[in-house]
Design a protein around this nucleic acid. Structure first.
Lengths: 334, 334
DNA sequence: GAATATATGGTGACACTAAAACAATTAGCT
DNA sequence: AGCTAATTGTTTTAGTGTCACCATATATTC
């Protein structure tokens, strides 16, 4: 790692001459610029990022706090964030809260010391359950902007990117009703999350609007044996002819379980689930899915944060962007 | 963000007094220490990370370059890296190469300017296909250590963490042979990768050792319609009674496809695939899997890198750690 | 009164750049 | 020609936040 100082010494000029020459300042003579650039090239000089950050008081780095990177949706959002960030010359530092409030706080604390220019995050489950939001407010009041996505706290004044959770399940349920399905269940593995609750409500509304049907909901807890729960649910409700799944695993397992029970999909039963394209390949026939456009969400969040960082938008002027889901009809619905 | 200077001004003492007081130096009087600490607490003072990095010439940050974050295995390794890094007070900056050589180079370049103390990476597919390794060598010679995992370049002198790819498929194939399977296929979606080739060789060896059987390999390309390819493969080989899958998607799709063809698993056909626990839930019956212990791989890689950073191990003294796979027998084998 | 604690302050260095200062050359004008 | 004014090329200075190192000042002890 060569520094300006070393170059300057070797060239017998001052440090700032080297600096200016490399920054194409017109103040420096053509001959000198050439000499400097040649030597810099030779030594593969790169301005030290840390020194620049210190001087300019910005790091060109975004802190991302994600509850769980093994969740395909969240990973995809991260992908979107990374891409947009890179496009704008930003790096991302990732903390994984692992759904824990303490780890989330810790990550926030640890990076709010000059390491990053702002945060993009989705709340940990524990944070949502306890409805703890002080640490977010504190960070914002320290001057570090936050953009929340998907699992957001409405009481925190910051930019947000969310999904039309309520409408998406409402509409999906309507689709199954239009297929003349008579017993439609809602299966969820994410009922402690804000988004999970919204999705359930969308389903409920559509069901109750029929005036004749009753909601039928299976809530699966994290520690449950997922396939086992779904299996016994199917056994209990043999006349099930429709499933709305709030998460990709419930959708995939649900569909595969139906097939293994000898049901014909979509003749005997239709299944719709939140899932990505690659997830939809994991069932035969392919799962009809509600796509959340995770990459778009990530890109949008990054875009909003970077915009705020660079424009110094006042912290009380916040925006909430809704990225609409799309229903992709595959082979698990009529 | 309060600085030492601001605290010093408010307390009417010098900057170094504040610094020392906060660092519990014995040189400073008890009363002063108390006053300083109280004010620091009040303002939630945190030493500026950037300034510290500059001074100490180390960032306590690891650069991670990952080909694809949507790959469950790679995401899990990242999880392991993050956890181990955090445990040791390191942050991680993530770059996603998206299997592209150029992006990999770019990420390496972009962070090799003082942003990180070292790298953990898995090679992009394009990098492996073109066998380009100069950029790694250059980074190492710049004094930044690299630890490679999974997809490694044996010609680069650096620490490595790999899996016993060859043995794992060899052994898995042996398991199916022991079940007296007569027509065992190998399905792979990763044949351009070093690990994919090793896995195929392990299978080949076991098959050829029978003296009677011939290898039967289905190679799927990235752009192919994955389920379609597998479907026509099954149609062509109706007498298939065993499958070894080199990647999780091939395993899951393969098993589900067999079920949809009316085959009884594992009575008529056995399937073994590289997959994680959560992946194995995506089939009915549950997929017998080769587990790669991704988190362990990540943790080990981080541990090795941090050790090297902190101990300044000479760059020609490198270690390769093999994390052995485990065969988890579920319901898709006898 | 000298030696020794005890407490605090000042300086420099990390790598970098913006701004100001300073030479040295050139141009313009009487 | 001889002066100032402008231009050009370069260096100096300052400042980003932090801490190790060395210096200084005061109080205490014998």
């Amino acid at each position: 790692m060569v520094t300006l100082k070393q170059l300057a010494k070797e060239l017998n000029v001052s440090i700032s001459t080297v600096s200016k020459a490399l920054n194409n300042s017109t103040e420096i003579g053509g001959e000198t610029v050439k000499r400097v650039k040649e030597l810099a090239e030779l030594y593969n000089y790169k301005p030290n990022k840390v020194a620049l950050s210190l001087k300019q008081n910005k790091t060109k780095t975004i802190g991302v706090i994600i509850p769980n990177i093994l969740n395909h949706f969240l990973a995809k959002v991260l992908f979107g964030i990374e891409r947009e960030a890179t496009k704008n010359g930003y790096n991302i530092i990732t903390c994984i809260s692992n759904e824990s409030l303490d780890k989330e706080k810790e990550g926030l604390q640890l990076l709010a010391n000059g390491s990053v220019d702002g945060f993009i995050l989705s709340m940990a489950e524990e944070t949502q359950v306890n409805n703890e939001i002080d640490h977010f407010k504190r960070t914002i009041s320290q001057g570090l902007p936050i953009v929340m996505f998907d699992r957001v706290a409405h009481d925190v004044l910051c930019d947000k990117v969310i999904v039309d959770d309520f409408e998406s399940t409402y509409n999906a349920t309507k689709v199954l009703l239009a297929e003349n399905r008579k017993k439609i269940a809602f299966i969820s593995n994410i009922n402690d999350l804000s988004v999970g609750k919204l999705r359930e409500r969308g389903y409920n509304k559509a069901i109750l609007e029929t005036g004749t049907m009753e909601p039928l909901v299976l809530k699966i807890k994290k520690k449950d044996d997922h396939p086992k729960k779904i299996k016994s649910f199917f056994k209990k409700h043999k006349d099930l002819d429709g499933v709305i799944a709030a998460d990709s695993s419930s959708g995939i397992i649900g569909l595969n379980m139906a097939v293994s029970f000898g049901l014909k999909v979509p003749k005997d039963i239709s299944v719709i689930g939140f899932a990505s394209k690659s997830d939809s390949y994991h069932t035969v026939p392919r799962l009809t899915t509600i796509r959340q456009h995770a990459k778009t969400i990530g890109a949008k969040a990054a875009e909003m944060l970077i915009h705020r960082i660079q424009n110094g938008t006042p912290s009380d002027k916040v925006v909430t962007k809704i990225v609409k889901t799309t229903l992709i009809s595959n082979k698990s619905t009529l």
